[in-house]
């Protein structure tokens, strides 16, 4: 299988400043050495609690903010941040869908203009081509044909997100970063949007990085799932393996938070809880960064950082318990 995206030891630190002249007093280590690969035509799910750095990671990959360190190899080539405009290859091949569809759409532009913007910027297309492409897209994402003349505030939340997806799809990308695309939506339309993404993937072979804070949402769409905690990935595994044999205590905590529809099973289940709050990304705990909250923490955990290793084929995790 071909790899579309490979990231290696990616880091993003935000400076923490203080005072009138804004001198730096520390760093927020939002992403702190993350590596993984995404295969062509597949979906890579990324889960983690709020504030663990998922969005930041997505933005680094998209190159809308400059990473602090590490490599990103996209379609076989290393990509770099450019402060004026993104690199051409990224504009043409890598797109995004964000969490809040209403705020992702310029309220002063009509839908037609919003969706066509990436094409207009690329500038290789005439009006007819653009129009044809738009009409085709409306059908693909399930929007009425007359939607082009409307303004975003005239659409429902689901329609807005479809517009965002259409905008991402308009350049026929190879890779889309979906940053919690359904979190802001009504539960009833979440499944529709996820199904739409799946069907688009079937038709166009596009790959997704699908970010969510909810394991139950990634479950349906992902092929591989990574669990992130405080800027680091603690477990990567093929989907089924992760749900059946979670290795990292944090993954187990997340899994136990998913409600099980069957009340009997729900009763039987041993609820694993994490203690306390997520620590601040400014002062990351020593050793295993999960240890202050880990239900199974040992003495060693606060001193030594466990290695990230492949425990069973394709299933990686980082925990002293696994040695």
């Amino acid at each position: 299988m071909d790899t579309i995206l490979k990231i290696d030891q990616l880091k993003k630190y935000f400076p923490v400043t203080k005072g009138f002249f804004k001198h730096q007093i520390g760093n927020v280590k939002a992403v702190d050495g993350v590596s993984f690969t995404v295969e062509k035509g597949k979906t890579f799910g990324l889960v983690g609690e709020s504030g663990c750095g998922k969005t930041t990671l997505g933005r680094c990959i998209l190159q809308t903010i400059p990473p602090t360190g590490g490599k990103i190899i996209f379609d076989g080539e290393e990509i770099f941040y450019d402060s004026m405009t993104r690199q051409k290859i990224l504009i043409a091949k890598m797109q995004a869908v964000f969490q809040d569809p209403y705020n992702s759409l310029n309220p002063r532009h009509r839908v037609r203009r919003i969706i066509a913007e990436p094409l207009v910027i690329q500038g290789h297309f005439n009006r007819h081509e653009i129009n044809d492409r738009l009409l085709m897209l409306y059908g693909m994402v399930g929007l009425p044909e007359d939607i082009g003349e409307r303004y975003p505030h005239m659409l429902s939340g689901g329609q807005q997100q479809r517009v965002c997806i259409a905008r991402a799809m308009v350049v026929q990308p190879d890779f889309i970063v979906c940053d919690e695309p359904v979190s802001a939506l009504d539960v009833s339309i979440r499944a529709q949007i996820i199904n739409l993404l799946i069907s688009l993937q079937k038709r166009t072979e596009v790959s997704y990085l699908f970010i969510s804070h909810d394991l139950s949402v990634v479950h349906h769409i992902s092929d591989i799932i990574a669990v992130m905690y405080l800027g680091k990935i603690v477990e990567i595994s093929p989907k089924t393996d992760l749900y059946e044999k979670p290795m990292h205590p944090y993954t187990r905590v997340l899994l136990s938070a998913i409600p099980i529809p069957d009340p009997i099973l729900e009763k039987k289940r041993v609820n694993v809880m994490a203690k306390g709050e997520v620590p601040s990304a400014v002062s990351i705990p020593s050793g295993c960064r999960f240890h202050p909250r880990c239900p199974e923490a040992m003495k060693k955990c606060s001193r030594e950082e466990p290695v990230f290793r492949e425990v069973t084929p394709g299933h990686w995790a980082q925990c002293h318990l696994l040695n």
């Binding site: 933005r59 809308t64 504009i91 890598m94 964000f98 905008r167």
Partner: peptide, 10 residues
């Protein structure tokens, strides 16, 4: 986010 979307769009 719409400015970010525009950046993404190039």
């Amino acid at each position: 986010l719409f400015v970010e979307s525009a950046i993404v769009a190039g």
